[in-house]
């Protein structure tokens, strides 16, 4: 099965649309959204509607910390995120809030665990930023592959037969073989707010039959999104961040 994995869309319609078009061009069997559909960006309503439609069509979708906060939960957040969240809440309808509140924290399919942040206590939203930080996730599940987001910077780690967890260097666009002798964890890059210095939407393609994972980048109309952020009166830093990809 070929699964397109999208995470941290953050209400960026242009990026979301561009990735969905790229996904369609690649031909996949299923789509998985790893949360943070809203927050930061100027199109929360549209992105929620799109996610709802995808879930109705069979997509997997788990809840992120911004989704949780938008649905009314109290979440500790940075000032920037807090400002954007207050703006977002005013623009979501009841339907949107219900959808976000209904999302599970984790999902499992084809031996793959889907989660927004660390697989260990997902509700704590711990960042997986290194091999050391990936260890609790490997301990929390027996899944062969853990896919998460939250960090906005892609990362790949493996856990070998001896239980040693190591970060693995990788290159975008090239299929990485997920050796069956190891368990794997991939932090997928952000669709709507990449922070690794590349102002292109990040996502990943998983092929469970071939046991391969490919980190992908899709260019999108970042100028338009940045203009919308400014027009909406959202903090300027959010526009700059999109333009710079960091």
């Amino acid at each position: 099965m070929r699964i397109a994995v999208l995470t941290d869309i953050h209400a960026n319609r242009e990026a979301f649309e561009a990735v969905l078009a790229d996904v369609a061009a690649h031909g996949v069997d299923r789509i998985a959204l790893l949360g943070d559909i809203v927050g930061y960006g100027p199109d929360p309503g549209w992105c929620c509607d799109q996610a709802t439609a995808l879930v109705a069509g069979g997509a997997i979708c788990v809840r992120g910390n911004h989704d949780n906060a938008a649905a009314g939960a109290a979440e500790a957040m940075s000032t920037l995120a807090r400002k954007a969240l207050d703006w977002t809440r005013d623009r979501l309808g009841d339907g949107h809030v219900d959808f976000l509140a209904s999302l599970p924290l984790t999902a499992e399919a084809e031996g793959v665990l889907f989660v927004h942040a660390s697989a260990s206590h997902p509700e704590d939203w711990s960042y997986v930023t290194s091999d050391t930080k990936a260890i609790p996730s490997f301990r929390a599940t027996t899944a062969r592959l853990i896919l998460c987001g939250h960090v906005h910077v892609p990362l790949l780690a493996s856990c070998d037969l001896g239980g040693m967890v190591r970060e693995q260097a990788f290159r975008s666009s090239l299929p990485i073989p997920l050796l069956p002798s190891r368990r794997w964890l991939a932090v997928v890059g952000s669709v709507g707010q990449p922070r690794d210095g590349v102002a292109q939407a990040g996502w990943a393609l998983v092929d469970t039959a071939r046991a391969e994972l490919t980190f992908r980048r899709t260019p999108y109309d970042v100028q338009t999104t940045a203009a919308k952020v400014r027009a909406a009166g959202l903090p300027e830093d959010l526009a700059v961040r999109l333009l710079q990809g960091k």
Partner: peptide
């Protein structure tokens, strides 16, 4: 050179 180097470390 296009795959992770499992031996690197």
């Amino acid at each position: 050179d296009q795959l992770p180097d499992l031996l690197a470390e």
